[in-house]
């Protein structure tokens, strides 16, 4: 690729990303009443999004070998359990991550 082709390639990725982020705000601008369906959809979605993001983090699990999925699942369960128990965001994240690092190293 020439430098111009590279610039175009990156620009296309920027354009597509910006589009996915701005589109809802362009279709439903702040100065107009948002349809009730969309308003309610907006309050319904976050639960599904958060769950989807967790699944997204686990999409690369490899069930072919125990080391491909056991550490991630154990550390995830410990993070969740600790957060349900103590409700301390930083504690849960720190313990879960350190445990994961200990398990994979």
């Amino acid at each position: 690729m020439t430098i111009i082709e590279q610039i175009i390639t990156v620009s296309m990725a920027v354009l597509a990303t910006v589009l996915t982020r701005f589109l809802p705000f362009l279709i439903f601008p702040g100065n107009r009443q948002t349809p009730r369906f969309i308003q309610q959809l907006g309050t319904f979605l976050p639960g599904a999004i958060m769950a989807m993001l967790v699944v997204y983090c686990y999409k690369d699990l490899n069930f072919g070998t125990p080391s491909g999925y056991v550490p991630a699942i154990i550390a995830g369960l410990v993070t969740a359990g600790l957060h349900l128990w103590k409700n301390n965001m930083f504690l849960s994240i720190a313990v879960g991550t350190v445990l994961y690092m200990a398990l994979v190293n």
Binding site: P46, V54, V55, Y56, A75, G76, A80, M89, S92, G96
Partner: peptide
């Protein structure tokens, strides 16, 4: 890199605590 997974697990639980019913979270998962 697992710190990101742990972050989303924690934020997912926070979200579960705030919502009145879990239909959306269950459907998403």
């Amino acid at each position: 890199g697992f710190v990101m997974t742990a972050l989303f697990i924690v934020l997912c639980i926070n979200q579960l605590r705030h919502e009145s019913n879990h239909l959306s979270s269950k459907a998403g998962a």
